[in-house]
Amino acid sequence: MLTIKNLKAGIADKEILKGFNLSVKPGEVHAIMGPNGSGKSTLANVLAGKPEYTVTDGEVLFAGKDLLDLSPEDRAREGLFLAFQYPVEIPGVSNINFLKTAIAEIRQYKGLPPMEAKDFLKLVKEKQALVELQVTLANRSVNEGFSGGEKKRNEIFQMAVLEPALAILDETDSGLDIDALRIVANGVNKLRSDNRSFIVITHYQRLLEYIVPDFVHVMYEGRIVKSGTKELALELEEKGYDWIKKELSQQVEA
């Protein structure tokens, strides 16, 4: 599904990812944890193709294609979805119109016929229920006037509608209270399947109680320094990130 090899990337001459490696198979859920500034969000943005980031080395294969060669929209059309840490507001553009445009473009790219209006509305209604998103999407602009929790739920809702092959959740838990967290996690869990993979980026172990990962990676200074199973997340929670830092410096000394 996704293979990242020795990825080096940064922003404005500052290298942030310093040789990142990861392999994700269909159906797997990978959690990436790490202290602030370790490069977690950079990874998400680089994979999605945010223009201000420059890739200096390495390769990323996604569903057999060179991901780094694709424009951001083509990455999305190929099935890569990023749930933004800070979802953007687009005044005047209704959520419905936004999604309709997205679906139309993706379907056109895949050579599929346009979706019938009634099918589309049915789909929207069904997926809205999934994340308990009660706002009237037709009248409201994309993320405008949404509460923090609504914005995050809207991201998961969009993910549900667009049905990606790989979803990257960038600190989707930040700023959520426990109820909202549970709703978001439920939504994600319902979307888990054998051919859909997830990369869950988080600072805290809390989210992983609800979205149970197959693998947990610890990221530090632009690369993965430790990998394990869900128990690693618990250990991290208990010992804190300083434990990793200490362990690393010991390795260096040794």
């Binding site: 999605a48 929209e73 999305a76 933004f84 979802p87 507001e89 687009i90 997205a102």
Partner: peptide
Amino acid sequence: QIFYCNQRGIETEKAVAL
């Protein structure tokens, strides 16, 4: 805003129009 649209599969020209 443009990148957000791109990430949902909408190309830049369309995103601007939107």
